[in-house]
Design a binder for these strands. Structure first.
Length: 712
DNA sequence: TGAGATGGC
DNA sequence: CAGCCATCTCA
């Protein structure tokens, strides 16, 4: 791509030099190297893929770059590439309208899941199957993963690389440490110790009078600045940052054929505005001396966190939507929005944002959802969609490598919407058991039953299933305990491995490979990876899950083309409605589970290390017969006949009660032990947005936002 | 922890 | 829009 010609021309004889010293000190230089969020030399980049979904399809289909293309989801277009935008195609356009404006437009429908399939696929005329399919964004997630990997490859190893995945098609990069290192190489004078060893001493001025900004879109300077004003180290730093971003983008382009846009500035807010400023395939640099001019030309509703309700409230309060006008409001006026929000706003429109780049590229939760048109109206319909959600989520867990990583979700959550009413239920995922699709299904089905029980649930317009509580990296709160529940296994783990395990805080993929391989094959993995999804198996058979076997059932005998009007996957026979009340007389029992074999205090069903995997046929019957007719206790992980549910829960209740009474005798009730620690925000500097909930809005004045601040 | 909500893409 | 993902608050 772009030639890497030297972009800085040194001029040793800077005849125009006025100041002998830089504005910046040796301390700033140190801050630059350690990612201080308040560092005046900080360099942050935002990289944003151009019309991402559309590019994915262009790459996948191998269509020419100038071919207009849009990505279709049912009747609407969710991504439109730049060639197509020349025809006036914008957001909120239907496929019909688009075709009229641009007859040669390729409209590629997203991939979809169909019940019983072991994988999503690109189906012919998928838009006709809105009633029976659910969309899959997996192809885009996978491309996103490749792109992030490529970006990481083109940067130094961590910790000098800091990459935050901010969305499926965007990342933030904190380039500070890398820029620091490059600066010291190019300007050896910066390596000298400060005079008198005083870090507050000012740096020498750079002996550079011209920066070659290459093809970067430089935004105009503030009125108070002039083009021939002297360069300082912030200019140097940011131009090095720009050069890094250019090389990152070039690498993504060469290797994966994707174009993206970039923004380089002193913080995330500005970098993000920058990347959106000139698209596609360009990058924008906002020098510190250009910030005020750049920003005051914007509507503040374009600024991150001001695009929604908060922005609307500000507009309503101050009767303007421009940064320029809002700059005239003094701090105490802005504080009419709330103290914290006002301060945050005050500094934000002045270009200040000390939010950090969170070195995280792995997701913390995943969700599978579907809106029903028309609404669905029976429990059985709900269960069938849940089967699809579970298949989707489980396969994504595997694709993500969560099992290999020892990352597994802790909670499962089901959301339900009926008109304006939304309800949700969640429960923990038993950590003592293997993580299997069957367990997920059990839990999800139970959650749906709970939602149905309290409150009328039908007709239901939307269902979604999510799993969450994934920790970043292996250690964190999960540590060993999340997986090792018995002493034997804990001992089996070498001390050295345990150390690496626990100290592993960042992403798996940002770690040096040697450190990682230890977990990949050694230690605890073999005890907890179900045999059917171990690496050998997944190489041999790409669909080792119950899914395939499911479709042996009469369930899917009527395969395709269920074009019924209802939002319903293919009919599923043989499902007995699991009632949440165990006293239902119609509740069948699991065949090979004898009630008397299961005492109320059954221990968690943990496979011993040497346990042989169930035979495939055993697995099938296990899944099918237990899944609908049994109850999986989230307290003790035991799988019980549904008829035992109430009895079992009573037993837990009694046991808890006994424990509480015992504790009370020692002056320690459950509630007394809980010392309420006020959730202090750990923001520093001028503060950052930490809120998102609505309940707090009600608590305060309408429209206020929760912002947390350190010292002003 | 569970439930409800917001913001942003 | 629909289908995501992240984060926060309050009990």
């Amino acid at each position: 791509m772009s030639s890497s010609q030297p972009f800085i021309q040194s001029s040793p004889l800077s005849v125009t030099a006025r100041r002998r010293k830089s504005k910046f000190t040796f301390k700033h230089l140190v801050q630059l190297s350690n990612y201080s969020t308040t560092c005046a030399l900080r360099v942050i980049a935002h990289v944003d893929l151009d019309a991402f979904y559309a590019q994915c399809e262009m790459v996948r289909l191998g269509v020419p770059e100038d071919q207009p293309l849009a990505v279709q989801q049912w009747q609407s277009l969710i991504a439109i590439n730049y060639p197509a935008r020349k025809f006036g195609l914008g957001r909120h356009i239907t496929s019909m309208e688009a075709h009229k404006l641009c007859p040669e437009l390729i409209m590629q429908h997203v991939a979809t899941w169909r019940e019983g399939d072991e994988k999503w696929a690109y189906h012919e005329d998928a838009f006709k199957h809105i009633a029976t399919h659910k969309v899959s964004l997996d192809p885009y997630r996978m491309e996103s993963r490749k792109i992030i990997a490529t970006i990481k490859e083109s940067l130094p190893a961590p910790p000098m690389q800091r990459v935050e995945k901010a969305g499926i098609d965007e990342v933030f990069l904190d380039l500070s440490a890398q820029v620091h290192s490059i600066m010291l190489g190019r300007y050896p004078e910066l390596q000298e110790p400060p005079p008198y060893d005083d870090p507050t001493e000012y740096l020498p001025r750079p002996l550079t009078t011209v920066l070659d900004w290459n093809t970067d879109a430089l935004v105009d300077l503030d009125a108070s600045e002039t083009e021939d004003d002297y360069l300082d180290w912030d200019d140097i730093a940011i131009s090095i940052g720009s050069e890094i971003v250019r090389s990152v983008r070039a690498r993504v382009r060469e290797k994966l054929k994707y174009t993206c846009s970039g923004g380089v500035a002193r913080n995330k807010m500005l970098a993000k505005l920058g990347s959106a400023h000139k698209k596609p395939n360009q990058q924008t640099v906002i020098r510190n001396r250009a910030v005020q001019h750049f920003l005051s030309g914007f509507k503040f509703t374009k600024i991150r966190n001001l695009g929604g309700k908060l922005g609307d409230d500000v507009v309503a309060m101050f009767n303007t939507d421009t940064v320029k006008d809002l700059l005239e409001q003094p701090l105490d006026q802005l504080k009419r929005m709330g103290d914290d929000t006002g301060s945050w706003l005050y500094w934000t429109i002045r270009g200040e944002d000390d939010s950090e780049v969170n070195p995280r590229t792995q997701i913390k939760s995943m969700l599978s959802a579907k809106s029903f048109r028309p609404a669905i109206s029976t429990f059985e319909q709900g269960v069938r969609w849940i089967r699809i959600f579970v298949a989707d989520i489980f396969s994504r867990c595997v694709e993500e490598g969560v099992l290999e990583n020892k990352r597994r979700p802790k909670t499962i959550n089901l959301h339900h919407r009926q008109g304006a009413q939304t309800r949700s239920k969640q429960s923990p995922i038993p950590q003592g058991k293997m993580f299997t699709e069957a367990i997920l299904f059990d839990l999800a089905k139970n959650l749906l039953a709970q939602v149905v029980v309290d409150g009328r649930a039908w007709p239901c317009a939307n269902l979604s299933l999510s799993v969450g509580g994934f920790e970043d990296g292996v250690a964190n709160n999960m540590g060993i305990g999340g997986f090792l529940v018995r002493g034997e296994e804990a001992k089996a783990l070498l001390a050295s491995e345990r150390h690496a395990f626990e100290s592993h805080v960042e992403d798996k993929d940002s770690q040096p490979p040697e450190k990682r391989r230890k977990f990949d094959n050694g230690g605890i993995q073999k005890f907890f990876l179900p045999r059917e999804i171990s690496q050998e198996d997944s190489e041999r058979d790409h669909t080792p899950f119950q899914r395939r076997e499911d479709s042996d059932e009469p369930v899917n005998s009527e395969k395709d083309n269920d074009m019924s009007e209802s939002s319903d996957p293919a009919p599923l026979s043989n499902i007995s409605k699991p009632t949440i009340c165990s006293d239902s007389p119609s509740t069948p029992k699991a065949r090979h589970l004898d009630d008397d074999d299961i005492p109320p205090d059954i221990p968690p069903d943990i496979p011993p290390p040497s346990a042989q995997p169930l035979s495939p046929s055993h697995r099938i019957s296990h899944f099918h017969q237990q899944s609908l007719n049994t109850y999986l206790c989230t307290r003790c992980s035991s799988n019980l006949p549904l008829a035992k549910k109430v009895e079992h829960e009573d037993w837990h209740f009694a046991k808890d009660l006994a424990k509480d009474l015992q504790a009370e005798e020692h002056g320690q009730t459950e509630s007394a032990r809980r010392t309420p620690v006020p959730q202090k925000s750990h923001s520093r500097g001028r503060g950052r947005l930490v809120g998102g909930g609505s309940s707090a809005v009600k608590g305060r004045e309408k429209g206020q936002r929760r912002l947390a601040f350190g010292k002003g």
